[in-house]
Design a protein around this nucleic acid. Sequence first.
DNA 1: ACGAACGTTTACCACACCTGAACATTTAAG
DNA 2: CTTAAATGTTCAGGTGTGGTAAACGTTCGT
Lengths: 260, 260
Amino acid sequence: MSSSIDPSNGKKRIQAVQTTLEILDALRAHGDAGVTEISKEIGVTKGTVYNHLATLEENDYVYKDANDRYQLGLRFIDVAHHAKSRIPILELARTEVDKLAEKSGEMALFTVEEHGMGVCLYVAYGEQAVQTPLYVGHRSELHHTAVGKAILAHLADERVAEIIDNRGLTEITEHTITQKQALLEQLEDVRKRGIAFNNQETIHGLVGVGAPIKNQHGEVLGALSIIGPSSRMDEDRLQRELPDMIMRSVNVIEINSTSL
Amino acid sequence: MSSSIDPSNGKKRIQAVQTTLEILDALRAHGDAGVTEISKEIGVTKGTVYNHLATLEENDYVYKDANDRYQLGLRFIDVAHHAKSRIPILELARTEVDKLAEKSGEMALFTVEEHGMGVCLYVAYGEQAVQTPLYVGHRSELHHTAVGKAILAHLADERVAEIIDNRGLTEITEHTITQKQALLEQLEDVRKRGIAFNNQETIHGLVGVGAPIKNQHGEVLGALSIIGPSSRMDEDRLQRELPDMIMRSVNVIEINSTSL
DNA sequence: ACGAACGTTTACCACACCTGAACATTTAAG
DNA sequence: CTTAAATGTTCAGGTGTGGTAAACGTTCGT
């Protein structure tokens, strides 16, 4: 049974590492967990899980608390910082997102793409911003967000096709676009207008406006977006006011980033 | 040679995981790196490094950029967020650190201990704050910082001994305390005063004032600190004004955290 | 156009990792 | 307090697997 049909469509990789990553994922999902718990969840023996956790703990990637429960180690915060520092426009984006949040009173954010997912790298809350499950580091599929569509619209066609094929078009709410053709048509609109919308496709009652940030070669570096409740978003605000604000911020970032 | 004398003083753990973690560490240190580069650095063959990186990349923990250079993946930011969310007093500490930075005009920070290291979880910059190599996620030994000594002073004696033995007392500047006895005496002072100082022990010309945050059982949850150039720190400010400010913030956090 | 460097792939074998089971230690119940 | 059930931890052993070494392909710089 070893090689008959490889279940994962990718190549076979190092199993021990795969297991460790699954354990970390289980810790992330549960907050904290015990050996037996994880062992059952990912289908390996207790002994194996124990050895992995011991290895990870010795390297400060997991932490065993007072109740002998395992948790993610704070070393991840260090690693995350170094991962973040690869994004040169992040500093610029921060100040602009702050401005957007303040001016609009809503929630504003900066997102980049990696491996076909959107990764939120900064969030700012305006005076009347709604609470969402968003956080710095949050990863989401691209097809159901404003930032996501802003990014997708400016990737190469084959990249877009590849991403859709790999990640699928999961239905999040009843408004989520789940048909490839419909999505591609929307992306065409986004290209024409330079602005992408999210009409309750992620969370019921929440709408978003987003625009891509590009470098001098036209490649997307990320996207900015403002998110708020549909009740506060009349036609003029959604179609003119907020897009204008975002486009101005995008311009600032694009101009200042040419020197980087 | 398998079992004669175990070179690492710990137990032998899963090698593949160890290798992967070393690769990640190399990526962290270099920002980006190639297969051959890493292979030389950690002393394994190119093929091995390649397989590890491929496994990590498939799981979004590393990212291969346009120039075929490997970098840390943004997924670490997601994991880091979940690791952070285990610290219940973080939110409270944030608002207090912000206040401290604003009032003092200097740099203020919140740090917790894990595995005998101090992990900086929040930094705020006052009007005239100096630039330091500190960042959220930064890990440092405890013996040469104000927060570190504040924490050490309120850990069990055997924990302190264990930490000193494991991590040593590395000399960072000429003012760093490198003698166990001298450190223990200082910790005694810290316990008496409730305040810890850093007199250019980390960076030449930089001093710090810190105090521990404890829960109702007297266990340390973390520490607050203000850091600034010694030129701006006269005797009164260092011994009275800043300690008072910090103690007030500590009180606020301790009181509000009893309900958690 | 050439060579040197790189990333990638392959084949093979020792041995490290998983499994299964026993042990130790804690928690819960009666 | 006794017992039982659950947990974390340790151990021995065989087998699948990850490491090595070397060849391949491709991308650089010159």
